[in-house]
């Protein structure tokens, strides 16, 4: 066992866990942060999508030893705080379109959407169908059309 210190949703945390445990399990099993979901464990379903220093990443595929005290992990639970509101504009767009069905994929979808909008904005352009086609998050309930609409709406609100 080893001690690992990093930041989660605005707070510094220290966990006592082996170096190679993937962050998804540190978040869920050790810290009890259950917003990021398991859907594959091999970085293909994207249900666990969260942010590391503001960028989308998949904690199922990152060892805890690879983050340090200055690294800030944001999970869906911490997303509203990044804009100092009760809900992030992307979450509001999701509610507006009633996107979720079972909801299992949706924390990951929203975190992916926020990162995509930021990325496209940094490139100085608007979201295209190709950008939306490139989103890898699986939704087995098939909410894809509403997701596309909500991202465009959320981008305007952001």
């Amino acid at each position: 066992m080893a001690q690992h210190t990093f930041r989660v949703n605005g707070e510094s945390v220290t966990v006592d866990v082996a170096d190679d445990v993937r962050l998804l399990w540190v978040l869920r099993d050790v810290l009890g942060i259950t917003g990021p979901k398991y859907g594959c464990g091999i970085n293909v379903c994207k249900a666990c999508t969260s942010h590391l220093n503001g960028k989308a990443f998949n904690p199922c595929s990152v060892q805890v030893k690879d983050v340090g005290p200055d690294d800030e992990i944001t999970t869906i639970e911490g997303l509203p705080d990044t804009v100092g509101a009760d809900l992030h504009p992307m979450q509001e767009a999701w509610l507006q379109r009633d996107v979720a069905q079972c909801g299992y994929c949706q924390p990951g979808q929203i975190m992916a959407a926020v990162a995509l909008v930021r990325k496209v904005r940094a490139e100085g352009r608007a979201i295209t169908d190709d950008d939306l086609d490139g989103i890898r998050n699986v939704c087995r309930c098939g909410t894809y059309t509403r997701i596309r609409e909500a991202i465009r709406d959320g981008a305007e609100r952001m």
């Binding site: 917003g35 979450q91 999701w94 509610l95 996107v99 909801g103 929203i110």
Partner: peptide, 18 residues
């Protein structure tokens, strides 16, 4: 809209593993 929509988008919705 779904009665659990807010829980779903905030990560508060609890599934078995949660």
């Amino acid at each position: 809209s779904r009665i659990d929509a807010l829980d779903a988008v905030t990560g508060r919705k609890r599934f078995t593993m949660d």
